[in-house]
Amino acid sequence: MADKHKLLEVKGLTMDFGGLRAVDSVSLEVHEGEIAALIGPNGAGKTTFFNCVTGIYTPTKGDILLHPKGLATRRLNGLKPNKVTEMGLARTFQNIRLFPDMTVLENVMIGRHCRTKSGIFRSIIRSRGVREEEQQIVEDSYQLLVKVGLGEFANEFSKNLPYGAQRRLEIARAMATDPFLLLLDEPAAGMNPQETAELDQLICKISEEDRIAILLIEHDMKLVMNISNPIYVMEYGKKIAEGSPQEIKDNPKVIEAYLGEETDA
């Protein structure tokens, strides 16, 4: 594992909301090819951690370093979210944030925005290049929909999709930005066991076929233990443990904080 290329390196990340320290010097690394997980009880600061990494919040302290393969290292602190996405880091949201009055396909097409470039004037003239690019966006987006199993819904409004499908659409939309690291915030929330199992496969497929590293927040322990390694555990803003699924299962601190009742049952 040590020889793998390090993609994301977070050092001592701290985020204060007024007097509340939501994230307290958390360090974390994601390597190439990994499916890492960030777990912890409600209110532990996981989503806040994601928001800091993706530029939605500017962290109070700490470093967020991105090491894209073959490119110079970039510090993400204070960068705007769209810049972070452009650098190859895409995310989904815990409380689904699709574009409800756009079709499923259009939702994914938005993801292609930062990888395409037709400007205002060329769009008005609608030159050949623009039309070709537009068609390419449609095809690419459709392929992504097929990948997450939503091909047949392409022309539906996204607000009419069932819950589980909306979550998968968020993943497709994030993948449309061509990331090398995907951050998923509770992708299985609200899904039934069947849907969760499908999601499980989808995440593995993305990791293997598309060579995208994944960092996911999840409450569904079965999913986490199945697919992710390493696992980071947070409680009250602090990182309390990290390691392989087995190490996490056996860690007394984690059992006390979080897993205790669940693993015994």
Partner: peptide
């Protein structure tokens, strides 16, 4: 009409629908 059905127009609509999701998808607000 052309603007609405272009890459720019879609970005406008996305901005209307959800600003945060829009910037998180790489659109310069």
């Amino acid at each position: 009409m052309r603007l609405r059905n272009s890459r720019i127009g879609r970005a406008w609509i996305a901005l209307r629908e959800d600003e945060i999701a829009c910037v998180a998808m790489g659109i310069d607000m």
